[in-house]
Amino acid sequence: MDWQPVWITLQLAATTVCVLLLIGTPVAWWLAHTPSRARVWVEAVVALPLVLPPTVLGFYLLIALGANGVIGGPFQSITGSSLAFTFTGLVIASTLYSFPFVVQPLQGAFEASGKSYLEAAWSLRASKWDAFISVASPLAVRGYLTAVVLGFAHTLGEFGVVLMVGGNIPGKTKVVSIAIYDHVEALEYPQAHLFSGGLLLFSFAVLLVVYAYNRRLPVHVS
């Protein structure tokens, strides 16, 4: 039994969530507070991965990440290595793929707490950054929890995009969902059962913990 896909999957999901929080937070913040008309356009783009077939996203990513692509090209000339069929390429792909699952809960949380607490914080000598850290973030803690869990879980379950841009390289880009596919193809049902059952239980347990914990969080902002 080869456990490497599990390890790669967890690594991929954890890395992706970290990247998503870094990029998703300012985007969600901007969406929640901007009066700009560009907002609806950005919202629509952010939501695209929800409706697009993963193969469409994967196809464009494959082109973009390739040695002649808009991302892969510059990357290769700087680092000397390609992005397609690498772990880094997978992180980029997963980040895009799971983007709405992180941005939307964060945006919702920022919108729910609104501007009024921020204004109060500013009037109490807190700079914008300070108010974000000391007031907006703790008030959005439920949003962050939901974002982390959904982003993580959604990355675990990704299949089509990974297959398109990551290929299926054992030890490098072979994640659990693809390993399951391989096992089924090879009629190795016991192994497929093990991975599938494991993923099912893990996902259920995480969601259970989140929902239970969410209820007990002290902050209620309506």
Binding site: S116, Y117, E119, A120, A121, W122, S123, L124, R125, A126, S127, K128, D130, A131, V135, P138, L139, V141, P218, V219, H220, V221
Partner: peptide
Amino acid sequence: LPVHRRPIGMVFQEARLFPH
């Protein structure tokens, strides 16, 4: 001068106490 640099105290219509 941004709000946080002004030596003002502000009391709003709603108290706006930080719930956390």
